[in-house]
């Protein structure tokens, strides 16, 4: 369980992005964090992963204060983070990235499983470099595969739907649906996308750096969509996703 207590974060030029945010994120739930651009979603996700350190407040993980632990230390505690814009590496292969994520000593069949969960064939991808020859959709899937390989107790996904094509998006929804059925830990997804919010156990609406609303997914969804705080997909896209 992650507990955020009175978290505040301000940009170096004085913009207040998070203002006294307190939240409890329970185990084995899919929790979506949504809200308008600039509302503080990505900042909150990065604060959980240790990429940003809050100026005020504290973060507890299963009761232990992890506020001052850096990114590596939090990763070792079991927090995984999927970047909104996955990083490309010249030379590092998909295989080596997933091996690093798994902590080493991973079997060939496990490597294959992680890639098939994100809709990629290991034979085609394991020895490819994670470089500019991969499309945005492929990068996103590999990014998610690295998070799956972590077997983390808390996995944070920052706008997984950003910058991907419709086919990759359809696969992404299926991946999260499968994860939700067999949750190995807490899933925290920062998203605008109604199709992702639809599968969340809980939705947290952040606005102007504060928690504006929070509740069960079903209860919150209609309000959020009607207030324009979530993006819907068109009928054609729906057909692909459901297809």
């Amino acid at each position: 369980m992650i507990e955020l207590k009175n978290i505040s974060w301000t940009t170096p030029d004085g913009n207040n992005i998070l203002d006294d945010v307190s939240l409890i994120l329970p185990d084995k739930k899919l929790i979506a964090i949504t809200g308008p651009n600039g509302g503080g979603k990505t900042t909150l996700a990065k604060i959980i992963a240790g990429i940003l350190i809050p100026q005020k407040g504290s973060i507890l993980m299963n009761g232990e204060d992890i506020t001052n632990l850096d990114v590596t230390e939090r990763a070792k505690k079991g927090i995984a983070f999927a970047f909104q814009q996955p990083v490309r590496f010249k030379g590092l292969t998909v295989r080596s990235l997933i091996e690093i994520a798994s902590g080493g000593g991973i079997s060939g069949s496990a490597l294959c499983d992680y890639l098939s969960q994100v809709g990629l064939c290991a034979r085609d991808y394991l020895d490819r470099e994670v470089n500019s020859t991969l499309s945005g959709g492929e990068m996103k899937r590999i990014e998610i595969a690295t998070v799956l390989a972590r077997k983390a107790s808390v996995s944070v996904f920052d706008e997984p739907e950003a910058g991907i094509d419709i086919w990759s998006f359809a696969g992404l929804i299926r991946t999260f649906e499968a994860l939700r059925k067999n949750p190995e830990g807490t899933l925290i997804i920062v998203s605008h996308q109604e199709r992702i919010l639809r599968i969340a156990d809980e939705i947290i609406l952040l606005n102007n750096g504060k928690v504006a609303q929070r509740g069960s997914g079903r209860k919150m969804l209609d309000n959020i969509v009607s207030s324009g705080n979530a993006s819907t997909v068109c009928i054609k896209k729906e057909a692909v996703i459901d297809g």
Binding site: D70, V71, I100, G103
Partner: peptide, 11 residues
């Protein structure tokens, strides 16, 4: 960002 990504994987 490359170093940061690998640090999120525990390095």
């Amino acid at each position: 960002e490359q170093i940061l990504k690998l640090r999120t994987l525990g390095l």
